[in-house]
Design a protein around this nucleic acid. Structure first.
Lengths: 117, 117
DNA sequence: CGGCTGATTCGACGTGTGTCAACATAGGTG
DNA sequence: CACCTATGTTGACACACGTCGAATCAGCCG
């Protein structure tokens, strides 16, 4: 594969300063809230943790489909997480593998930890 | 009422290991997702950042009511944040002051930063 | 090629959520 | 005490969201 670099942009930047630094603008809040909302569903949060804690930081859909909802629903939630920029997907042969996007995750964490510290 | 002390517990504990450590259980996910969901609305996230970034870590409702929605809606969102354990409120005379709950915030941050690192 | 398994998409349905206007409550002030 | 400001509560409504079954698409294998 010609993945020499990474032209498909991450597109979701660090975004915002720590919440204690200064109030978020309407636009910042809009963008950031979308990520929190993506993790605001139990099933999605569980799927996300399954991918994040899997070996190599990636997991096949077939490995994480046992969260108590139907398989189409799993696919639906994975799509939401992908749209929020938290996960990336790649098809390899028969199976599709999902992987966490570290930078976005770190940015969200930074918003909170600094606020708590 | 004869509330001699403060039976209303904080009730929201650190909760969970970093998301990379191990998959969340259904119950853990349920509890944690509720907090993320609370921050998953632009207006709420903005209100929260307004309180968090305010001097002394607390803010009067009158100081943060200018987020583009009606006053009842602000009150509604503040209630949601309070129920999620992210904010505490206290009435002092005419005004009601809101304050962030540092421990909960730190716990959420820990979930994410460890995952990103 | 025909069929099989894995995964996403589509259409529908019930529930949850954000929003507001109107009303109710708390506390200060004349 | 009557009024006025500051918050919270209620009821209603439109819309978004989670869920599923059925249909569809993507590769593999016999």
């Amino acid at each position: 594969m010609s993945n020499t670099k990474a032209p498909p942009v991450p597109k979701v930047e660090p975004c915002c300063p720590p919440l204690t630094e200064r109030p978020l603008t309407a636009e910042e809040a809009e963008r950031t809230a979308a990520m929190f909302k993506a993790l605001g569903d139990p099933v999605r949060l569980r799927l996300f943790s399954l991918v994040a804690s899997h070996d190599g930081g990636e997991a096949c859909v077939c490995d994480i489909s046992d969260v108590g909802v139907s398989q189409p629903t799993v696919s639906h939630h994975l799509k939401k997480l992908r749209e929020a920029g938290l996960l990336t997907s790649e098809r390899r042969g028969t199976w599709v593998y999902y992987r966490v996007e570290p930078s976005v995750l770190a940015a969200m964490g930074r918003l909170l930890v600094s606020a708590g510290a």
